[in-house]
């Protein structure tokens, strides 16, 4: 039985692949670009040889690898994976057709081979589904990491003053990242004062408030003072309603007010020298 199918598969390479190429698959399904690495012949040839090895060894390792690679590429380039399913189907259909032509006189043999192919088709589809989900999960994980990297900048504003603008929802994972970034930023810049701007945080609940307090306390332990700025009315209401005690944490309503206080602590003075704002077009003072 095994021998039979191996023999058939190895012998009818040209018929199977020829049928596949002639079948209704067009470039739109296979993709004509770099994604599938060349022409459809290569795609079918690789699948064919992978299946040949797998049928010999009665496994699905090679085919799985090949399908996984195709699925990963499709997901990476944002293409639909449905055509891949079609490709596998076409390969199996073509094989069945080739068997029918080849063993016209032996219907038993044809049906045995067809049954075998059917089994492989099902398994291959399963692998395709699994690989697609895996590839997508991988993409999502990567994007999450990029997002985290982007989302917590610590900006040195002046000698000894840092600004930490927080934008977007804060969850536990992000709060940890924020704390780590801020603390290492403080040590690196040897900064005394940190302005934490939370005007870009849409929802402030007990969790977020708790994380904020922890961050402020940790910064204080290093020897830096925090000013929380950009507290919106809703946030203030939440804090009061939830009965959270912000204790000795300094808060200001706007970044400007916080900056003013930070300047005071550092004995900076901000004043305008000369006339008004320079004209943007000429660069001269108006």
């Amino acid at each position: 039985m095994e021998q039979e199918i191996v023999e058939f598969w190895a012998d009818s390479r040209d018929e199977i692949i020829g049928k596949c190429i002639k079948s209704s698959v067009n470039d739109a399904i296979l993709g004509s670009g770099e994604g599938y690495q060349g022409s459809r012949e290569i795609v079918f040839d690789r699948l064919w040889s992978a299946l040949l090895q797998d049928i010999q060894g009665d496994t699905l390792a090679k085919t799985g690898e090949e399908i996984g690679r195709l699925a990963r590429e499709a997901v990476k380039y944002g293409r639909d994976v449905e055509p891949l399913q079609r490709i596998i189907e076409i390969l199996m259909e073509s094989a069945e057709e080739a068997a029918r032509t080849k063993y016209r006189e032996e219907p038993d043999r044809v049906s045995r081979i067809a049954g075998y192919l059917e089994k492989y088709l099902n398994k291959a589809m399963m692998i395709l589904a699994k690989s697609t989900v895996k590839a997508q999960a991988e993409v999502i994980r990567k994007q999450k990491d990029y997002l985290l990297e982007l989302s917590t900048p610590v900006i040195p504003l002046l000698d000894g003053i840092l600004v930490l603008p927080l934008i977007g929802t804060i969850d536990t994972r992000r709060a940890k990242q924020i704390m780590d970034n801020l603390l290492s930023g403080i040590v690196e810049a040897q900064a005394d004062t940190v302005l934490i701007d939370i005007s870009g945080v849409p929802i402030v609940d007990t969790q977020v408030a708790h994380h904020l307090m922890k961050t402020v306390q940790a910064a204080r332990l290093l020897g830096a003072r925090c000013i929380i700025v950009g507290i919106r009315p809703e946030f203030a209401q939440t804090i009061v309603k939830l009965g959270i005690d912000f204790g000795r944490i300094v808060t200001k309503n706007s970044l400007q007010a916080g900056l003013k206080l930070a300047f005071e602590w550092h004995n900076y003075e901000l004043r305008r020298v000369g006339g008004g704002v320079p004209d943007a077009t000429t660069g001269a003072n108006s």
């Binding site: 940790a218 332990l221 020897g223």
Partner: peptide
């Protein structure tokens, strides 16, 4: 930072002790 995070996680914020960088 590692020590500071440990202390805060333990709930010990050393209130009232002065700190410096």
């Amino acid at each position: 930072p590692a020590v500071a995070i440990t202390l805060v996680e333990m709930g010990l914020s050393l209130e009232g002790i002065d700190t410096a960088l």
